[in-house]
Design a protein around this nucleic acid. Structure first.
Lengths: 251, 251
DNA sequence: TAGTGGTCTAGACCACCGT
DNA sequence: CGGTGGTCTAGACCACTAA
């Protein structure tokens, strides 16, 4: 490692890759391969430094970046742990809906409407980087806040990655959906991009949400990615925004 | 500085403040006081280290955090500069509207509808931490994208901070609004929080946007803050989201 | 070529956690 | 107490920019 790509004296192409980024790549590989599983601790900084033949500070900077991306979690005095969706803290990283006073919505309850396999529509296939008409799973559900239906979700998943997913299994599971994906299917959501629009409730979805057709709804279109920027979920959420709103921090 | 709060041997209350945070506070004070103005370079890391009597690495970590908050901008080989809203890069930090293909919207044109002084409504006063009925400035404008009106903005500002702001002055200025606030009024927006909802266009705003009353609009309510978490702007944007959408990255 | 930020090291010590 | 992450230092060297 010490001599691999350092000191870019020779005519190089890849511009330059500092040591700590190479360490970061090694750590990422370990996460991706499952060498360290979600929730577990990775080796200490000193041990990793020894293993990779670099100084502790270099390992530290690599871990710093991974912690900044929420792939690792540092806990002073205890160690560094692999990020997981089974935590209080991680819950609201992807759920941006807040109650009126700004606090996190309390009892959000999920009701699965259906879960069925089908061939991917072209727009979904495109976003999931699948061949057109490849198998996908469509999950539909309603999230209720304070007993009132507030969000209608359509969730599209690559069929090849989510074999055995069923409405029963979804209904039985309580907790964050991404937690289930992580432990049951070994797929960890890393990041997502969202597009928000205002649309009118159509005749099909209005009854599910208990509103009139034509009511303005906040449409949140999300594409979620796992390692390697691989898209693994398309989600369309139709939200009634009278008691909830979408919260965002700009900085 | 070297002996100030370091070595928490004595029974302390404030838990613990590392040296680099104290340096960060000193730098922030310099920014706030105008010792270094937007766009200018601050002293080099070594010079600051000398001035504060700490090592370069400690100054570096302080600057790292400030750069992470977009208060400073590092440019390798050139120096570290005070962040400003007069840049290409900073433009889209607060403007999250994107065109269909995801790219940044090209020619967005602003038309000022009016700019008038009034007493703050209670909700606005509350968000701006003003006494009720204190003076505020209300600016209304329409942003057009590709020649079509797409966003109707209502912008509320504390009257005491924005003396002399007028429709003419706003119309004469081309470029980002926060750039004008920065150079003309010495107020630099640091961060903002937004709440998004879907609403129906009312009779008053529909004509300005060229839509029917009842059309779903994306309502973006923003509160902007300057140093010390002081709120200095409330903005309500009503967006037609057929050719534009609100873009967000979750990680 | 001089000056700036960026990387890397080695070592010391501190704060925090569990036992 | 021992182990972990967190801070701080001093110094060397590299990459980038501008003159």
């Amino acid at each position: 490692m010490t001599e691999s790509t350092r000191g870019n004296h020779r005519a190089e192409a890849p511009t330059f890759s500092p040591l700590y980024r190479q360490i970061k790549a090694l750590l990422t590989r370990g996460l991706q391969s499952g060498e360290w599983k979600p929730g577990e601790a990775i080796p200490s900084e000193t041990e990793l430094a020894l293993r990779f033949g670099v100084s502790q500070g270099t390992v530290r900077k690599a871990i710093d970046e991974l912690a900044g991306e929420n792939l690792l979690i540092r806990r002073q005095g205890r160690g560094t742990f692999v990020g997981t969706h089974h935590e209080e803290k991680a819950q609201f990283r992807f759920l941006r809906l807040r109650a009126e006073h700004g606090g996190e919505p309390g009892g959000m309850e999920s009701r699965i409407l259906d879960c069925r396999r089908m061939r991917a529509p072209v727009d979904i296939a495109k976003r999931l980087l699948l061949r057109s008409a490849e198998a996908v799973v469509l999950v539909r559900r309603v999230l209720s806040f304070e007993g009132r239906p507030s969000v209608l979700d359509e969730i599209w998943l690559p069929g090849a990655l989510f074999r055995g997913l069923s409405a029963d299994r979804l209904s039985a599971y309580s907790g964050p959906l991404y937690g289930l994906f992580e432990t049951e299917f070994g797929i960890r959501m890393i990041r997502a991009t969202e597009r928000l629009r205002a649309v009118a409730a159509d005749k099909a979805s209005a009854p599910e949400l208990g509103v009139e057709a034509g009511t303005p709804l906040l449409l949140v279109e999300r594409v979620s990615y796992t390692y390697q920027d691989r898209p693994v979920e398309v989600r369309r959420g139709y939200c009634v925004t009278d008691r909830l709103h979408y919260h965002n921090e700009l900085s």
